[in-house]
Every structure is written in C-alpha cells, then in structure tokens.
C-alpha cells in the first residue's frame, strides 16, 4: 500500500519486509494515485491536518486483531494553542521547570543550535510535538515512525519485554511497547540530556534529561484518526510529569513522505545561532505572531557596516 507514496527503492524494500512480516491488507478506501509532491513543493495546507467530515471507516486491524496504526498522518492544530511547544496545555504555555531545569533551559537556549536545523536527529518526545506530518509502518511485532526529515525510530512490541535498566543514551531512547486494550503503549527511556547533548524536548528548545521517561498511548479510533496521549516524566528538569495530547488525520490519497536532502547544501548550518529564538506570549517561537512586517524602505548594507 505504501509503495505508492514513495518512489525510493529503500521504501519499497521496507514495504516488502513488512509484507513478509505478515501485515494484513488494510481496510482502506480505493487505491490512490502516486504521490507527486516533494517536500519543498508542499505548502502549509498540505502538511497540516484538516478535520475529516466524511463517513466513518472502521479501524484497520493487523493479524493480531489489534488496530493497525500504519498510515501517513497530518497533525491537527488546536486553535489558540502554540505549535511545537510541549507546554501547550500548561498555564501560560510554560512547563514546570525545576531549578536544574531552568539552568538546562538556559544552556539549551544559549549553547545548542537547533539539532534538526543541522540535520541531527530530533528524537522523542520532540517529534510528537512537531507540526510536520509523519508516517507509521506497523506490524504485530515492530513499529516504525518515520519523520519528515528522513529520520525514523523502531519500536519493539512485546508485552513481556521491559525497558532496559541502564540503556545507552540515544536521541530516540530505547522503546518497548505493549497493548492495553485498544491502545498501543510505548515506553521510552535512555534519552540524551540537553545539558550536554544536542537534543531538545520540543521545537521551543525546552530541555530533556537522561532521566526522562516518555509514555505514549496511541489509539486509532477509526481509519482517519490517530490520537496520542503522551506523558513526559523527567523529575530532574521538571517538578512533575506533564501530558501532551494530539490528534492526527490520515493524509489524502497519494500523500506520503518523500526524499528530504537535509544536508545537501545546508549553508545555514554555519550561521544559525543557539536556541529557538524569542518565544512569544502565545507560546510560539519567533516573530511571526507579533504583527512585525518589513519596513517599507529597509536600509542598505551600509547601515550595518557591510
């Protein structure tokens, strides 16, 4: 099914492997047309999810009878809530920092260039708060989440398996998953630490520590929707666990991830400063929400001694 969405041989191979692994035919609408849009052709309207108003289509299921999460998923943006900020449901969109967490935040904002901007893995939980679509390939024993900048993680589904006690730190940590009724619960530990590694908790440059545990509860209530309730427990940098929720909508027929040449000509990498930049009162990074516009007659380079 997914071969339609990507011309790359690698993806075709992945689909083949999944087919051998026993993924059943999904209960999906008619086969779509091939994808034609590359990442740089997409617009904001292609990436964000739009509320689905068509007839309900049953949740597709795998050979184990559990919901099959496979699909191309576009995030629904909540009105009045910032994007890319895991504190979107907190008071003033601010996470409950501990004293150590505030120091780690200062470090992230003043020493760490946005890892994704220099083609470093974004990791978990950051990707779950991203405004970009992502893709899932799911078999009864393995699940892959594949992201826009051509990075991915693998999750083992095994109710008898526990997270490792002293894992090697990774951007995506080490994840194991189990089913709780209709919800796939993924537990991740062994993440890198923002005070010494190039990892952020979210797009706003909030910190995450080597003690972070991320618990994701994924459900697919019908064909067109994917929901997440994610709890981040990091009592090193935050005073209490906090929760992030989001709903994704299945992409249009023919849509899917394609090639993204992150490092092809990333001239910017040498000029990007540390941190996410100014965070506005609405919880978003940057200046785009403060009604700033270019002046009518900007000065020439001589104003800046250039």
């Amino acid at each position: 099914m997914l071969a339609r969405t990507a011309p790359g041989l690698a993806i075709v191979v992945v689909v083949f492997v999944f087919s051998v692994g026993g993924a059943p035919p999904a209960q999906v609408p008619p086969a779509p047309a091939p994808a034609t849009q590359t990442p740089s052709e997409l617009t904001i309207n292609d990436l964000r999810g739009r509320p689905y108003s068509g007839p309900r289509v049953e949740t597709p299921r795998g050979l184990d009878g559990k919901p099959d999460l496979t699909g191309y998923w576009r995030p629904l943006r909540e009105a009045g809530k910032p994007g890319g900020n895991l504190g979107k449901d907190e008071t003033n969109f601010a996470l409950p920092f501990s004293d150590l967490g505030r120091r780690a935040l200062l470090y992230s904002q003043n020493h760490t260039v946005d890892p994704e901007a220099v083609c470093i893995l974004g990791g978990i939980p950051r990707h779950n708060g991203s405004g970009l679509p992502f893709e899932i390939l799911h078999t009864p024993k393995r699940l892959a989440t594949i992201y826009f900048y051509n990075t991915h993680r693998w999750v083992t589904i095994d109710e008898n398996r526990q997270p490792p006690t002293s894992p090697e730190p990774h951007y995506f940590g080490t994840a194991v998953a189990r089913w709780e009724d209709e919800a796939l619960v993924i537990e991740t530990v062994g993440l890198r630490d923002s005070s010494r590694d190039k990892i952020w908790l979210d797009e706003n440059g909030n910190p995450t520590s080597d003690e972070t545990r991320v618990t994701e509860r994924w459900t697919r209530p019908d064909f067109h929707h994917l929901t997440l309730q994610m709890t981040v427990t990091d009592l090193k940098y935050y005073t209490r666990p906090f929760t992030f929720t989001r709903t994704w909508v299945h992409g249009d027929p023919g849509q899917g991830l394609t090639e993204y040449a992150c490092n092809e000509n990333n001239i910017d990498a040498a000029h990007i400063g540390p941190g996410a930049g100014a965070i506005g009162p609405d919880g978003n990074r940057g200046y785009g929400y403060q009604d700033l516009e270019l002046p009518k007659d900007p000065p020439g380079p001589e104003k800046y001694g250039l």
Partner: peptide, 23 residues
C-alpha cells in the same frame, strides 16, 4: 496563496528581525 514551507530552522535562530535590509 501558498508560501514556501518546511522551515528547517526557525527564522529567529538565524536572522535578526531588528535588522531589515534592502539590497
């Protein structure tokens, strides 16, 4: 109708909103 997209880095991380320029 559709400005380019897929910001790989935030504007504020690389550019200075207080330094508009014309070339």
């Amino acid at each position: 109708a559709s400005s380019r997209l897929v910001a790989h880095h935030s504007f504020a991380a690389m550019y200075d909103a207080n330094k508009p320029i014309r070339l």
